[in-house]
Amino acid sequence: YKPHAVTHASDYFDQLYAWAVELIRRGHAYVCHQRVEEIKGHNPPPSPWRDRPVEESLLLFEGMKKGKFEEGEVTLRMKLVMEDGKLDPVAYRIKYMPHHRTGDRWCIYPTYDYTHCLCDSIEHITHSLCTKEFQAR
């Protein structure tokens, strides 16, 4: 089997970042200070930062990009209620590790939840097969 093309989410990091900024501007995403342990599991408590002002989230997201926070200190979350009581999935997190394709250009990385459908859209993919580890999302 030879695929038509091999692509990577990192091919689209600039576009994914621009769309994240636009989500914040439209009030559909916010920077959150809840720790991973606080938002895991079924029916986690809503984030106290969910209604943070747009301008504040924009400044904090820029700070995330510039490396002003520690890993795990802040995330960018999308405002939506998912199936089964799960709230506001994480769209971006901080990781201070060079990327195998982009080097040290980025210290914030988009999550699978954020990139999967967007990259499919960019690439005009109409059907996507996923393994069961993503079933909960």
Rank of each mutant, 00 (worst) to 15 (best):
A9K: 03
K66P: 07
T7P: 00
L129P: 05
L118R: 15
H42Y: 09
Q15I: 09
Y114K: 05
I108W: 02
Y114W: 15
C32S: 11
A20S: 06
E133M: 06
R50V: 09
P110C: 10
R50D: 08
Y92W: 15
H42N: 13
E123Q: 05
K68W: 13
K68T: 13
D104L: 08
E22L: 04
P89K: 02
I108S: 06
R25G: 05
Q15T: 12
M97N: 11
T75Y: 07
I94Y: 03
I94F: 03
C130A: 11
K79Y: 01
F13N: 03
P46R: 10
A136Y: 15
Y92T: 11
G103D: 13
H42I: 08
L58D: 03
Q15K: 15
G103E: 14
R50Y: 04
L80E: 15
R93N: 08
S121V: 03
F134G: 15
V90W: 01
D120A: 12
L129E: 08
D113L: 01
P48Q: 07
E62A: 10
N43P: 01
L129N: 10
L60K: 01
H4E: 14
S10Q: 09
T102N: 12
R93I: 07
H33A: 11
T7K: 14
D120K: 10
K2F: 10
G85T: 05
L118M: 08
I122L: 08
K132F: 12
A5H: 10
K68A: 15
I24H: 00
L23M: 13
H33T: 11
Y1W: 09
Y109P: 08
C107V: 12
D11T: 05
A91I: 05
E22Y: 00
I39L: 10
L58R: 01
R26T: 07
Y1V: 14
L80R: 12
E62Y: 01
R137P: 00
I39S: 04
T126V: 06
G103S: 14
V54T: 14
R93L: 10
H124D: 12
L23G: 00
T111D: 04
M78V: 15
C117L: 14
V74N: 00
L80P: 00
I94N: 03
Y12K: 02
E73L: 01
G85I: 02
W106V: 14
D51S: 13
F61S: 04
P53L: 05
P45L: 09
Y17D: 11
H100Q: 13
D88R: 00
C32Y: 01
S47F: 06
Y112F: 14
S47K: 03
R25P: 02
K66M: 15
M97S: 14
P44T: 11
C130P: 00
G41P: 06
D120G: 10
V90G: 01
L118A: 07
G67K: 10
D84S: 15
R137C: 06
V81A: 09
F13M: 11
K95C: 04
F13C: 03
L60I: 03
S121K: 10
P44E: 11
R25K: 12
K66N: 15
P45S: 12
G27A: 06
H28L: 08
I39T: 14
A5L: 10
E56Q: 13
I39F: 07
L80N: 02
